[in-house]
Structures are given as structure tokens and as C-alpha cells.
Design a protein around this nucleic acid. Structure first.
Length: 571
RNA sequence: CGGGGCAUGGCUCAGUUUGGCAGAGCACCUGCCUUGGGAGCAGGGGGUCGCAGGUUCAAAUCCUGUUGCUCCGACCA
């Protein structure tokens, strides 16, 4: 490919709306262009990288027995009604109607589609296990698309679905995918970590998110340096902290004027924050009031609360009116004396506190000497781990202090169990001729997000630094002055030798000044640049520059091919 | 959804307060010159100032409405 014919519009400046480094660089290097909020076109360079990532994914999926298929983007509403998700998915689903008024959506995911695809075809355990995957556009009407390809509304995703005859089989499939993901992201040159994740409303089974470590990432990860534990903050388990036992003093109600925050309460009563109990009020979609209690210095993990409460699908902050209707008072709540019918979730650590301070369910009053074991009616409360992890909390595995970091979730593997197969009536006959529901798993990778994450992790002030495996081109050959025929000829020769050796090379034959070309090369981030100028022409040597390290190397003409190829392997 | 901000040539923005010829830099085209890190000179093309109404002799500028984008918060791959 000649750069003079390549459509790669680079920019000196980036549009005002791009804030993330990767977004700016993708824009400036001519990888993508925006069509609408969260919707992008991929230009040749960007698409080349996308294709390379997809190829790596394909190879690893196929190696594990995956078979590629293609399913429709447009999906009929009936399918989603069958699984119950037409209503559940909410505003995030892009919906539309055809001319007859029939309802469709643009697929946000394909569990329903694939389950319906196989349910009438796969009839016997002999056809299992089965792993089918596709790489395709998906649609989610994000509340707030941002960061370019990181959080977009239309995005390319690989998703594989596994079908097994039993849980053991499903776990084998899960492990295969886990291993494949490990290989995929390693091959892409990413620094990542598989972290234990919450599998949300789907429940049961296990789930890991493959997270690229980057400070700009949107997810918080707790990890342990002494063992290999890593979990998203939503998931990270926490052990009960037992306070030193004390003699239980009598419960007492005291005046705490205007002390509606924990800070004010602890100062007013002059108690350590570890001896206070904090309340956070939620409501679910049915309007049920859900009160969550944690120790004053802890934060509530909303996901854990959601998982602890049976039947709740979403939580939002409670309305003031709902709190007073339950006999509570915002800022002064406790499980003691709240009306029945209120869902009360108490963090396990709270149950181990002695003589603590909690709200008295009336304005400007708190209880002191609250002893949850004695004062809470345990038949009416849910006790669970509902606190949010923070740096320094003990690792649930080995007890060492946990570290926190941020990451970009590029893939997720999880077991679905029978949820969708059951809802859609997908069954087969097992060895005993018994009708059995499939055990499923699903495994996604955000392709565009992976590209963005790679850039986010590998760049400098001059531009992108691609890993060789996913670079749009591996090597660029630059004649400094393309109007000089000797240089152009020499460069073309080197370029052709590289091509013939199977190297993905680009010839920058543009009639631009050297500075312009060099800056473009750095911005786009080709791993190796071969520079052809008067110096090399005279010496007959070949000069290369490594993008990542900036080092300039000179090779003898006859050994340059071999040297470049071995250099490439290191990149 | 709540709260801010923005919308002027391909990009970054000035001009709006106080109404009076639509501007700059970069990019683009032509020519000269130049070619080891975004050169220089000369000439040139391109904008119904987001859209729709209104006020006015006159609107990018003032008023009303509307759409899009964007940032912060509550949500998610």
C-alpha cells in the first residue's frame, strides 16, 4: 500500500469534544470519525486494526472449537417477550417498528436469537457441546455515550454462546473461553487482568471480566498483591469485621439537633465514626422502600444490596415521601421502629457492633448504645455483605490489604445456566431419553473497546504506539524526499522486499516534507519506520527507528530483512 | 432524567456584552522555493453564523421556540 493512495486524514488538532487520550488519538490519526453521538465510522487505518483484532479472536475461538455464524441485527419483539426481556431491558434498547407496525429492536445482545436458532434443531446430547460465535454490530442506547469507542451506542462485539448438556460441560466450556480470552488479550499486547465480576440479574454461576489496566478506565478493581485475587468493586467480597466485645449498655434516645449526616453525628456525640451506623434509602421499580445499613465509615455497594433483595431489578434513591411513609426521617433512620413492609438490609459488619449510634426514625434524634444483635429484629431484616470495597480492606482469600486500580472492561465471560434456554423452551434429549434444558454460557469481547484500550495503554506525547500484532501496518518505509527518484526507488525496493517476506508494510511516497511524514508516522504509531534519505543512500545501509523505544538502528543492506523480522517479533 | 456549557468554512476558535461589510490560525487549491522532525513567499476557493419564528431601517449579535452536541451527577459492555 502506498501512503499517497491511503485514505488516512490526520489532524493536528483534535475536536473539542474528545477528552480521553485514546479518543483524541483515534481521531487525529484518522482511525475513526463520528457520525452521531456514540456512533462512528471506521476509516482504513482504524478498520485494519479492527480486522487484526477480529482475526486474533477468530483464531482463538476456532482453536477452542467455536464456529462462526452471523445473526441478524434486527430482532423481532416476540423473541424478547418470550424471554421477558422486552420489558426489562428498558430505554437502553433501540426499538423500531416496520411499516406494518410490528415491533423490532436492534440487537443489544443475542441470547434470545441464538437460543431460538438452535432450539428446534439441536435435539440430542450427541450434538453437544456446541459453541457458536459471531462478530457483529450491537446496539445499546446508552444514557450517556462518551469516550469515543469506549462507550458507544453502536459497537462491534464478538459474542460466543456455548450449549452443554450439563453443568460440568458448561464449566468446561467456560474454562475454554477463559483460556482463549487470556490468549487473545495477551496476543493483542495488553496488560490486563481477569477479575471476578458480578453477573447481575442473571445470577448464579461464575463470571470474569477481562480488564485492561488503565487509570482512565471506568471500572474499579480491587486486587491483591499477595495472591491472585482480583474482583470488580461491585463484586469484591468483604469479610465481617468484628468489633471488640463490650458490655451492652441500655438503649437510649438522645437529641442530635440538625445532625443529619454521619460527620455531624459523630462530632456532636463525640464518638468514633466506627461506632456509627449509616443508612442509605433506595426504592425498587415497584416502589418498595429498601433501607441499607452500613458502618458510618463504610459505603454501600448498591449491586450487593440489589442481589440481597429478592425480586428487585433496579434500585434508585428513595423519595423523601416514601421514607416518611415508612415512619422514617431522612438522615435519622434505623431498623429500630421502622414500619413493617420496609425491606431492611444490614451489612454483616454492622451486626457485630456494640453500643453504636443509629438514627431514631424521628427528626433530630439518635439512639445510642445500639446493639444490633440485641436490638434488631433478626426475623425482619436481611443480613448480608453489602459494603463497598476500599483500598486496604483485607483480601477475602489471604487477608492481605487489597489495592484498588481502574480498568477498562474489554471482555466478559459468564455462565448463563438454563435461564434463557428455559424461558425459550430450548431442550434436547439426554442419554436416558429425558427432555433436558441446555446449560448455556456467553462470552463477549468489545472489539472497538479493545482497540481503544490498547491505545489508552500505549501512547506518548507524539501519538499511538501499536503493538505489532494489531498495528494497521507493521512497518512504514519513508523516503525523506519522495520527489528524489533515487530515494523513491530505493525505498520502493525495500518496501517490496518486505512485502514479499510477508511483512505488512506501507510505503510513504507522499510528496510531503520529512517533518510532516515523521510526525504522521509517530501519530499513527507504526511499530517500525524505515528511513531512506541521502545518508542511507550513500552508505547503502538501512536505517530503522523503533516507535516504542525511539532507538535508531542501522543494518547492512543484505541483512535488513532478517533483522527487521526478528525485531518485529519483539514488538 | 436533573444541573451547567456550547453551536460561526474541514479542524481550533474570535466576533454576541453595547445590533451596522462574516474574521484569524491550521487544513485545502495554484505557482515559486524548500526537503533528516508539522518551512517560506505570492495568489486563490470555501460559511443561508444549528433550525424556525419574531423585534428592527438593519440581526451571528436582541426575544421566543426547537434540534443537536457536550460536561457534571444518578446508570451500564
Amino acid at each position: 500500500m502506498k501512503a499517497s493512495e491511503l485514505y488516512a486524514p490526520t489532524l493536528r488538532e483534535s475536536p473539542a469534544e474528545a477528552e480521553l487520550t485514546s479518543h483524541k488519538l483515534m481521531f487525529r490519526a484518522g482511525l475513526i470519525r463520528k457520525a452521531a453521538g456514540g456512533i462512528y465510522s471506521y476509516l482504513p487505518l482504524g478498520w485494519r486494526t479492527m480486522k487484526k483484532i477480529m482475526q486474533i479472536i477468530r483464531e482463538e475461538m476456532d482453536a477452542k472449537g467455536g464456529q462462526e455464524i452471523m445473526m441478524p441485527i434486527t430482532q423481532p419483539a416476540e423473541l424478547w417477550r418470550e424471554s421477558g426481556r422486552w420489558a426489562v431491558y428498558g430505554d437502553e434498547m433501540m426499538r423500531m417498528k416496520d411499516r406494518h407496525g410490528r415491533e423490532f429492536c436492534l440487537g443489544p445482545t443475542h441470547e434470545e436469537m441464538i437460543t431460538s436458532l438452535i432450539r428446534n434443531e439441536v435435539r440430542s446430547y450427541k450434538q453437544l457441546p456446541l459453541m457458536l460465535y459471531q462478530i457483529q454490530n450491537k446496539y445499546r442506547d446508552e444514557i450517556r455515550p462518551r469516550f469515543g469507542l469506549m462507550r458507544s451506542r453502536e459497537f462491534v462485539m464478538k459474542d460466543l454462546y456455548s450449549f452443554d448438556k450439563d453443568v460440568d460441560g458448561m464449566n468446561v466450556s467456560y474454562q475454554k473461553m477463559y483460556d482463549a480470552y487470556d490468549r487473545i488479550f495477551t496476543r493483542c499486547g495488553l496488560k490486563f487482568r481477569p477479575v471476578e465480576a458480578d453477573n447481575g440479574a442473571i445470577g448464579g454461576g461464575h463470571s470474569h471480566e477481562f480488564t485492561v489496566l488503565a487509570p482512565s478506565g471506568e471500572s474499579n478493581i480491587a486486587y491483591c498483591e499477595s495472591c491472585d485475587y482480583a474482583a470488580s468493586d461491585e463484586k469484591a467480597e468483604l469479610k465481617v469485621i468484628k468489633a471488640a466485645p463490650e458490655e451492652m449498655k441500655p438503649l437510649e434516645k438522645v437529641e442530635t439537633p440538625n445532625a443529619h449526616t454521619i460527620e455531624l453525628v459523630k462530632d456532636f456525640l463525640n464518638v468514633p465514626i466506627e461506632k456509627t451506623i449509616k443508612a442509605v434509602a433506595f426504592q425498587d421499580d415497584d416502589g418498595r422502600l429498601i433501607l441499607a445499613f452500613v458502618r458510618g465509615d463504610h459505603e454501600v455497594n448498591e449491586i450487593k444490596v440489589l442481589n440481597a433483595v429478592e425480586g428487585a431489578l433496579h434500585l434508585h434513591m428513595a423519595e423523601e415521601s416514601a421514607i416518611s411513609a415508612a415512619g422514617g426521617s431522612a438522615g435519622f433512620m434505623s431498623p429500630i421502629g421502622i414500619k413493617d413492609g420496609t425491606v431492611i438490609v444490614v451489612d454483616s459488619t454492622v451486626m457485630e457492633m456494640y453500643n453504636a449510634v443509629a438514627g431514631a426514625n424521628e427528626p433530630d434524634k439518635h439512639f445510642i448504645n445500639v446493639n444490633p444483635r440485641r436490638d434488631f429484629d433478626e426475623s425482619k431484616i436481611i443480613v448480608a455483605d453489602i459494603r463497598l470495597v476500599r483500598e486496604g480492606d483485607p483480601c477475602p482469600n489471604c487477608g492481605a490489604p487489597l489495592k484498588m486500580t481502574r480498568g477498562i472492561e474489554v471482555g466478559q465471560v459468564f455462565t448463563l445456566g438454563q435461564k434463557y434456554a428455559k424461558a425459550l423452551g430450548a431442550t434436547f434429549l439426554d442419554e436416558n431419553g429425558k427432555e433436558t434444558v441446555f446449560e448455556m454460557g456467553c462470552y463477549g469481547i468489545g472489539v472497538g473497546r479493545t482497540m481503544a484500550a490498547a491505545i489508552e495503554q500505549n501512547n506518548d506525547e507524539n501519538g499511538i504506539i501499536w503493538n505489532r500484532a494489531i498495528a494497521p501496518f507493521e512497518v512504514v518505509v519513508v523516503p525523506i524526499n519522495a520527489k528524489n527518484n533515487d530515494q523513491l526507488e530505493y525505498a520502493t525496493k525495500l518496501y517490496e522486499e518486505l512485502k514479499n517476506a510477508g511483512v505488512d508494510a506501507l510505503l510513504d511516497d507522499r510528496k510531503e516534507r520529512a517533518g510532516v511524514k515523521f510526525n504522521d508516522c509517530d501519530l499513527i504509531g507504526y511499530p517500525i519506520r524505515v528511513t531512506v534519505g541521502p545518508k542511507t543512500l550513500e552508505s547503502g545501509d538501512v536505517e530503522i527507528k523503533i516507535r516504542k523505544s525511539g532507538e535508531v538502528l542501522t543494518f547492512k543492506r543484505e541483512e535488513f530483512l532478517e533483522k527487521i523480522c526478528s525485531k518485529l517479533k519483539e514488538l
